[in-house]
Design a protein around this nucleic acid. Structure first.
Lengths: 186, 186
DNA sequence: AGGGGTATATATAGGTCTGATATAGAATAT
DNA sequence: ATATTCTATATCAGACCTATATATACCCCT
């Protein structure tokens, strides 16, 4: 899904500036399953406005740059509806943590414990963020999506805690793996 | 994590061609938490070879293009060790499915059922793939990572099945949402 | 026998996106 | 007082994915 479509969706929740859209992806409703950078949001908004899918109204502010508030046009609303009716791309899950775990036999046990603790900490923070946050909008849809996120995050935490000993046992004994790297395959 | 590092990791499991590395990300050990395309793998292998982290031996084959088999050099092995000792980037989870669900109130109920069924089908296939496959290598590490994947996938399936009715209830009544789009926010 | 599909195998152009950086005043913290 | 964070927009280099090009072999169906 293109950043242009993500922006259309963000604006379907209400008018917003580029900065505010970015916050939706950083701390808001979209934060645990979607992302977009300034470098893609700003050009996307310009393009969408040029194509007549958005209108832009500059609110002049004291001291700060003009706040450009974007709104969906009827054309934009229709384009988003169209996007929602398209086939949905498969989810993508990227984990450098799991990638590194594959090579745990080349790490000192201490390092394995460290990355495991970091991952658990990260997951617990994420879980708290999802449950605690007073994210707007608070619709039945966003509640469900948040519950999904909390459920999955908790499931990861459970797995890692239940298998802590097995995971730590994957590491080499101190230092040994550096001098004689264990081959994973013959 | 750069594709170059991913390639180093793939080759730490044994010598391989670009095509074989791609398969590791498509069907192999890395498939459910990492990805890389030909368009990034081939340039990465060239760059790594130029930098002395890999050596390349061309195996001539009848009919097919030469198979270029890459191997880690000592420098490459060290570079990968170095990469494993770096701080690990946070996991990334992208889901167009969840993004679309936020807008379920703008979809006909039938469409909501459809995307839910598709997602469940996709998840069950993924779960079977992880459990069934005779992925090589079959190390304690890769077993653990596979179990993690199976556990999380199952947890998603459970959530969606338990909440099927609630999710379907998010949709609009037939067609109504197209003529008068429900505003998610005032 | 021939057409279509899949698998092997490398390579690149085009478009998209991230990450870093620049700018600049306000508010908050130390 | 000073430093950091927040608001707010913008751009560019580098990284990456998608689609395509090029070849050949093998299998299935008709």
């Amino acid at each position: 899904m293109h950043v242009r479509t993500l922006c259309l969706g963000a604006l379907a929740l209400g008018d917003a500036s580029g900065y505010e859209i970015k916050k939706l992806f950083e701390d808001g409703v979209f934060s645990h399953f979607s992302e977009a950078s300034f470098g893609s949001i700003y050009p996307a908004l310009t393009k969408l406005t040029d194509d007549g899918l958005l209108t832009c109204q500059a609110h002049s502010q004291e001291g700060r740059p003009d706040k450009k508030v974007y709104s969906l046009t009827d054309l934009g609303r229709a384009a988003f509806q169209e996007a929602l009716s398209q086939p949905i791309q498969a989810d993508k899950y990227r984990s450098d943590f799991l990638f590194c775990l594959i090579f745990a036999n080349q790490m000192p046990t201490l390092r394995v414990s460290e990355i495991l603790d970091n991952k658990l900490k990260e997951l617990k923070e994420e879980h708290n963020r999802i449950e605690a946050e007073g994210i707007v909008p608070n619709t039945p849809s966003s509640d469900l999506v948040k519950e999904f996120g909390a459920h999955v995050t908790l499931s990861m935490i459970e797995f890692l805690e239940e298998n802590r000993l097995r995971i730590e046992a994957l590491g080499c004994e101190t230092g040994a793996c550096l001098s004689t790297p264990c081959e994973a395959v013959g």
